[in-house]
Amino acid sequence: MAELTYRDAVARGIAQEMARDPDVVLIGEDIAKAGGVFKATVGLYEQFGPRRVRDTPISEQAILGAAMGAAMTGLKPIAEIMFADFAAVCWDYFANEFPKSRYMTNGQVKTPLVVRLGNGGGARFGAQHSQSVENWCMMIPGLKVVVPSSPIDVVGLMAAAVRDPDPVIFLEHKSLYATKGEVPDGEIVDTLGTAKILRPGKDATILALSLMVPRALEAADRLQAEHGIDCEVIDVRSLVPLDTQTILASVARTHRVFTVEENPRLCGWGAELMSIIADEAFYELDGPLVRITTPHIPLPAADVLEDLVIPNAARIVETVLRTLSN
């Protein structure tokens, strides 16, 4: 057992899979000699060499197209798109190429690849380097979308993503890179499509993802300590496949549900989850379905402004209190 940062967990997960399978290769901008702009791939170039860990030009379409062509013909590439916002300049691959080739060719073409992206806000980078793009990806049939919140999940879900035969979008949160957690020694392989109950509770279910997970946990502790409200916190972890059973079972126990979403409000993943809950667990509910999200605005750069718009523990506490007291 060792304490690892989230960023070191990324490198550990990739190293675990590269050591296991010679078909796993890693490409991206500054990921090799420089170890990545977020330092999440430090040591991989030294360990696996320039043939398997390869720097690319600033050519996001070339990076993803190359990953796809390699995947179609037998490799298992991991490609990094540095800031998740840059997905917009190579969106064709997310929307048209990776997810549709298998279907359109009646199963002939396979694209087992992983795209890693530096997702999310909190670094004061402004509106084009801070977005949470999981919803962009979730809406496309054929993609899988994984959004880990802790070092151990990063390692295990990275392994699961690399071994998965489908294209997996792996969203790493920039503001979590420095966070730490215990990670056992040895091989770790998790399962895509499984949510995790991080804190059992009986009064309300809080569904969270990525950076919102530690904030939901902090809010749950305060709600318990200061108000005697016992919240269950579920880390959704994987948007596609989606573990609706864990979520619906929790709602059936607590009868109240909240989502905490970093994304701007419209069409957030929480809206999809709430619609499923409304459809399938309506008679379990004792109150309204409440989403806590960033307002529907581009993110401002200034720290004081960014902190006002991305959900935090105080806002979660206040929203849960207000809702449960109505």
Partner: peptide, 24 residues
């Protein structure tokens, strides 16, 4: 290996297949 209907998309994809050949 496919016919691609989004202009230009398959040039990088062909690079990827060629990269696999080079790699292996």
């Amino acid at each position: 290996m496919g016919s691609y209907a989004i202009i230009g998309a398959h040039l990088p994809i062909a690079c990827g297949a060629a990269w696999r050949a080079q790699y292996r």
